[in-house]
């Protein structure tokens, strides 16, 4: 029987892969993709517990999370365009304009 615990473990795996991706990779585009992985992990948790508790609030909250993820992707990709235009790179190590 598949229970919410299975989904929680899968979501932890996804979340940690996302965290590792954000910390390890230096490509701005890949870092944004890892962020999307973390959003997906959160949504999996919300859906699993929505079913477990027979409560629709989890699904509504997941819709809000998807909306915020779309907004974040739009802003992040706009930042990539600005970074490429300014410094001609997508490497996060090169993005040091505000470093003192």
């Amino acid at each position: 029987m598949i229970e919410a615990t299975h989904y929680v473990v899968l979501s932890i795996i996804l979340l940690c892969l996302g965290i590792i991706g954000v910390m390890v990779r230096r490509n701005f585009i890949t870092v944004l993709m890892s962020l999307e992985l973390m959003f997906n992990a959160v949504n999996l948790n919300l859906i699993a517990f929505s079913f477990r508790l027979s409560d629709l609030a989890g699904q509504v909250l997941a819709i809000f999370v998807i909306t915020v993820a779309a907004a974040e992707a739009a802003i992040g990709l706009g930042l990539i365009i600005a970074l490429v235009r300014l410094k001609n790179t997508v490497s996060l190590d090169e993005a040091d304009l505000m470093r003192g």
Binding site: V24, R25, R26, N27, I29, I80, I81, V84
Partner: peptide, 18 residues
């Protein structure tokens, strides 16, 4: 965005890991 910025042509795309 990947198509627009042409990642292959950028200088420091070989830096893979921190």
């Amino acid at each position: 965005v990947i198509m627009l910025v042409n990642v292959k042509g950028l200088a420091s795309s070989e830096v893979f890991l921190s």
